[in-house]
Amino acid sequence: TTVEVQGVEYRFDNPEEAEKFAKKMAKSLNLRVELHGNKWRVE
């Protein structure tokens, strides 16, 4: 599972970890998070 934060990609073996990371990043950067296939995008 991939998390893309403002163009930078982070890879996770565990989808739940990816989701937690994406939501945490979105909250700290005041952005929103969307799931596209198996990629979380924070923008």
Rank of each mutant, 00 (worst) to 15 (best):
Q6L: 15
K20S: 11
E17G: 04
K27T: 12
L29V: 02
E19R: 08
M25N: 03
H36V: 14
E34K: 10
V8S: 05
Y10C: 13
V3Y: 01
F21K: 00
E17Q: 08
S28G: 07
A18C: 10
S28M: 15
P15S: 09
F21H: 02
K24Q: 14
D13V: 09
L35H: 10
E4I: 14
A22V: 03
E16G: 10
Y10L: 04
A18Q: 00
F12L: 03
N30Q: 07
G7R: 03
R11P: 06
K39N: 09
K24H: 14
E34M: 11
E19N: 03
G7Q: 03
K24F: 15
F21M: 02
E19L: 09
V5R: 01
G37C: 15
F21R: 00
Q6A: 09
A26W: 01
F21V: 01
L35K: 13
K20D: 12
K20N: 10
A26I: 01
F21L: 02
R11Q: 11
F12R: 00
Q6T: 06
G37W: 03
A22S: 02
G7H: 05
M25K: 05
L29W: 03
N30Y: 05
N14P: 01
K23F: 12
Q6K: 09
M25F: 04
K27V: 13
F12I: 01
E34A: 11
A18D: 00
Q6F: 14
V3G: 00
T2M: 12
P15K: 07
E43I: 14
R32D: 06
V42G: 03
E9C: 15
D13N: 10
E34F: 13
V8W: 07
T2F: 14
V42N: 02
D13R: 08
G37Y: 04
F21E: 01
F12Y: 04
E43T: 13
P15T: 07
E17N: 06
A18T: 00
R32G: 09
L31Y: 06
K23D: 05
N38F: 05
R11W: 13
A26M: 03
L31C: 15
E43M: 14
K24I: 12
N38M: 06
K23L: 11
F21I: 01
K27E: 14
V33D: 02
D13H: 09
A26C: 08
Q6I: 10
R11Y: 14
K27C: 15
H36C: 15
N38L: 06
F21P: 00
K24G: 10
S28Q: 14
L29R: 04
E9Y: 07
G7I: 02
T2D: 05
G37E: 09
E19V: 05
E16H: 12
V33G: 03
A26V: 02
G7A: 03
F21G: 00
T2V: 14
L31I: 05
A18S: 02
N30E: 05
P15C: 15
N14D: 14
S28F: 13
W40K: 02
F12E: 00
L29M: 07
K24M: 14
N14V: 08
